[in-house]
Design a protein around this nucleic acid. Sequence first.
DNA 1: TATGAATGAGAGTTCATTCAT
DNA 2: AATGAATGAACTCTCATTCAT
Lengths: 237, 237, 237, 237
Amino acid sequence: MYIMLEGGESIQKMSRGRRNPEQGIPLAEEEEQPGLRQMLKSEKTRAGLLRAAEKIFARDGFEASRIEDIAAEAGRSRGAFYANFKGKTEVFLTLRTLAAQRHARMVRERVLGLQDQEARYQALIGYIVEQIYDTQAQLLQIEFKLFALRHPKMQARLAEMHLEASTRVNEQELSGLFPEKTGRAAEMRCSTLEVEALLEGFALNTRFSPDVLDEASIQAIVPRLMAQILSRSEAES
Amino acid sequence: MYIMLEGGESIQKMSRGRRNPEQGIPLAEEEEQPGLRQMLKSEKTRAGLLRAAEKIFARDGFEASRIEDIAAEAGRSRGAFYANFKGKTEVFLTLRTLAAQRHARMVRERVLGLQDQEARYQALIGYIVEQIYDTQAQLLQIEFKLFALRHPKMQARLAEMHLEASTRVNEQELSGLFPEKTGRAAEMRCSTLEVEALLEGFALNTRFSPDVLDEASIQAIVPRLMAQILSRSEAES
Amino acid sequence: MYIMLEGGESIQKMSRGRRNPEQGIPLAEEEEQPGLRQMLKSEKTRAGLLRAAEKIFARDGFEASRIEDIAAEAGRSRGAFYANFKGKTEVFLTLRTLAAQRHARMVRERVLGLQDQEARYQALIGYIVEQIYDTQAQLLQIEFKLFALRHPKMQARLAEMHLEASTRVNEQELSGLFPEKTGRAAEMRCSTLEVEALLEGFALNTRFSPDVLDEASIQAIVPRLMAQILSRSEAES
Amino acid sequence: MYIMLEGGESIQKMSRGRRNPEQGIPLAEEEEQPGLRQMLKSEKTRAGLLRAAEKIFARDGFEASRIEDIAAEAGRSRGAFYANFKGKTEVFLTLRTLAAQRHARMVRERVLGLQDQEARYQALIGYIVEQIYDTQAQLLQIEFKLFALRHPKMQARLAEMHLEASTRVNEQELSGLFPEKTGRAAEMRCSTLEVEALLEGFALNTRFSPDVLDEASIQAIVPRLMAQILSRSEAES
DNA sequence: TATGAATGAGAGTTCATTCAT
DNA sequence: AATGAATGAACTCTCATTCAT
């Protein structure tokens, strides 16, 4: 997901100096651990940069974010940034991949452990509602979608990846929850976007005017809207 | 509305190059009458630039929009732009003022002429639902809100202006429609933002993935969500 | 000559803000001379930048030359440079075009005025020999050829342009001087390169070691080598 | 030869980034014997890097050549490069030393074994003519001379070293071939540069336009020009 | 000695803004 | 009011060089 970019190269290949951790057979006459310590260090650098980028992108927006700010936030130099990523676009999209993975992990952890079908459903709804308050994540999502629709050459691919990632969770982990929807990928995808529209719209507006659209208001309305979206699907199926 | 954001705040990240210290945002309204013919010509230039700016901002986003592109789109030069506006920020906010005025005018035209209370209510709902499809307008709204929340010094003022404008319409033109809300500005404001959250979220996502969240899907769900929002207000009042 | 670059755009179109001096009919309601003064000024800027670029390129080589140095040498800013040229490559190639034109003009002036065939021949030889001492010009020529052979995608085009320009002079202005060669473009081109090889080789080495390969040595040997090249052509024809 | 260009001269434009103040250029020759096995391995690395550097410099030119490309071409890391050389300048000049040594060895091998004076003369000419086709070597020579004349502080020393190396061959190995020149170092040096001018000029131009200045043309003219240079020396002596 | 992550100076380029016209 | 050349700050990205391992 989010792996293929323009020119068909994977994000992994795009960055210089990255190396696949597993290298299998070490060459004869070379040290066994050619630089385990170093690799760990660089992994830490990369992780730090990603964390920093996430913060800066959410704070300033994709366009206004400066590499220098990201590097400084991570306590690194610009060079370190470019040793780990090809450019602003790459970190940004890498971040989305990671977010999608995190999302999948969270759903799995919080939903799949439950026995009861009803409990699962509640857990899912709860998880989604919770996300409203992670406004930083939602702002990044908005940035991502704006980015996509302003880069027509990537748009289709990015949209596809995004939905692929979301739906995979839904289909695999959630099958059974919405039995009437199993196999109806199109509907599932549509509902996914509707839920996201809600989350993003409310996140944006609560950030825009926290005093007016406060937590209480959100708590009062969003779950009901969410139910509306999900029930519609059921009703129609 | 959006009138005076005067003075002395430095907004470091807003733009590159030399920076104009004062951030005052004057009215888009006409001055006295320095010479009718003169004014007409320059009014045309100004209007053309505003139209062009609206298009470019929606297409490229605030940050990525270039003055040169706006001027070119209007068939004018950079100089004409600076003769009419102080800078990018000013046109952008001027545009919001005009959008608010347009909004007020539309509501007045389409709602106030009607006699029947119920007809008025339906007309209002209809107008709101219609706006979903003006995705360009919604994208500009998203840009505006992102701009606001990324410029903390202006944020409160911008949010206040925005709601002031919206609510004025609601209060003055719509008084009677929601009699139970008259005087309850806070609730009205909150509902306004909820509706906007919906419009913006759906506009963004239908642009992001038009095949998945298509017009039919929107038509099927958004009016119901809208009703939910408005009815809650009524119910709770 | 040297006009077509990658992408098939002419150099003229590549630079921003350049304008074709002749505009024909001035638009009604606009000033007659929309900016004759300004145009002259900008022409001066451009000319100054070209002169500066020529100097810097010859001094530092194409690769090591910095835009900033060129701009500073011309008493201008980097921005002025980019307003007039698309980049380093464009100035460099523009410079070659101008050099070719200058060469053609010189030959015409110094050779065509003469009545006697023999006098013309002598004048031509004299002009060529003279060029040895314009070592800056020869160094630029070397830079140009190195540039060409290190940019494979342009190489063929650049070589063709270069020879086209040189040969045009030879064919048109010099027809009659080497009657036996008229129409034998291939031979003429070959001789041209041989002469250039000589000029460039000697210019480089006299610059490299002025004390060893001094003017006297050059004077003693180059004309003879030149004669050898030209006579061979005659002998073989 | 090319041994000590020691100390303290700043060559501002030579490279970017951090700069090593000392410009000493040590011998490419081996040190004592710090451990035979060790030395052999590192000698191999060093030799590989030199070979790689030669290729890259010829292909991209001195300025445009990147350390990383050289290291990669040798299958080594940047670190290996800096363990063996002080920087780009040092490898480049080391390469010249080696080329001079190679040149001397070749002349010795191919000329000194012969008994007959005439045979020796022919062998020498043959060797020189052959060199035209080693265009890579000539391009490196051009790069070297351009480098020298663009680094005024080193120029005199570099020129001196270059000629010293060439003339040593001529004087020691060739004494007897040109008896009338023995002791006339100045003339010998001058002829050397003239021959080099020829080789370099023709190498450059045949690379620039291989179709026009093809092998046949070169074969037809260069030997005659060469003879002209050498005979003049004889005639004048 | 060799590795390669990291540094950071600096080059190329863009573009908001100014200013002479 | 309008033009557009020019400015210069700021940004992205590159790469010689250093340094911990």
